[in-house]
């Protein structure tokens, strides 16, 4: 069964149309990339799938269940995990506690009043951090980390919720080129093992074309092309609108020539 099915989503802010008629679907274990220049509406789509924004029109189905208006909390319980474009973590806590917090919530213990939180699910959290190569900073305050590392913590938090669908909005921002590929390799591995479907955006075209099985190209809120990385590379309209003529559109920051 289709994991995620998005139908005719639309959203505008005042006069700005951030998304219009956006439809796509995502299977279990698949990696789907959304690309497009800054302001194309990628984050808006992520937020409508994640529950941070309510669409003006259209619907979002997860495993066939309509979650268009469900709160983010409900979506989490149904198996949606995500990272944010601007990293969102708990800066007053240690790295391990960030992950523990997700595990506590996942196990519905967040209203417990007695046993200290720092003793709960510590081993599980450390195991997860180990997997992401973060074991050495487990006890550091999250506020002391470099931005790239905060992004990794976010990924660990998201994975701790045992997601079926993982949304990653620019997961490798702030990392060096080699780190980016490594992190995405690792994510792909974990996703593959657990059958997680991944929707991600990325400005680094090497990462996109190296990891996505399918690519969606968004321009001014509309999907202008969908296909395999190879098809997208060949697509005339995409080349013209996005990859080719640099004067037609502002060139997004951090894009390496594809």
């Amino acid at each position: 069964m289709t994991l995620l099915s998005v139908q005719k989503l639309a959203k505008s802010f005042g006069g700005v149309t951030a998304a219009r008629d956006v439809s796509f679907s995502l299977e279990r274990g698949e990696m789907l990339a959304i690309i497009g220049p800054n302001g194309a509406g990628k984050s808006t789509v992520f937020n409508m799938v994640g529950g941070q924004l309510r669409p003006d029109q259209g619907s979002v189905l997860l495993n066939g269940e309509n979650i268009t208006t469900a709160a983010p909390q409900k979506r989490f319980r149904l198996g949606v995990g995500r990272t944010f474009q601007v990293a969102q973590s708990f800066l007053s806590m240690s790295v391990a506690e960030n992950v523990q917090m997700a595990l506590v919530s996942c196990n519905r213990e967040s209203a417990a009043l007695w046993t200290p939180a720092r003793h709960r699910y510590r081993d599980e959290a450390c195991a997860l951090l180990e997997q992401l190569g973060m074991a050495s900073v487990a006890d550091q305050p999250c506020s002391a980390l470099a931005y790239g590392d905060v992004k990794r913590v976010e990924l660990a938090i998201a994975l701790a919720g045992q997601p079926k669908l993982l949304l990653m909005d620019e997961p490798t921002a702030g990392m060096a080129a080699r780190e980016r590929t490594e992190l995405m390799d690792l994510t792909a591995q974990i996703a593959d093992k657990k059958g997680i479907g991944i929707l991600f955006t990325e400005h680094d075209m090497d990462v996109v074309f190296g990891h996505a099985e399918r690519v969606i190209v968004l321009l001014r809120g509309r999907i202008i092309a969908t296909g395999s990385p190879e098809e997208i590379r060949q697509n005339e309209e995409v080349r013209r609108a996005y990859l080719g003529d640099e004067h037609a559109l502002e060139r997004p920051k951090g894009v390496s020539p594809a």
């Binding site: 989490f76 209203a111 200290p116 939180a117 998201a158």
Partner: peptide, 28 residues
């Protein structure tokens, strides 16, 4: 003090630190 150290207190801090993140991990 126990409450502050317990998951409940941590959940409160989590919501203070980042509301979007807290909601995304299912905290009410």
């Amino acid at each position: 003090m126990r409450i502050i150290d317990a998951p409940f207190g941590y959940a409160l801090r989590a919501a203070r630190d980042s509301e979007p993140r807290s909601e995304a991990i299912g905290l009410g």
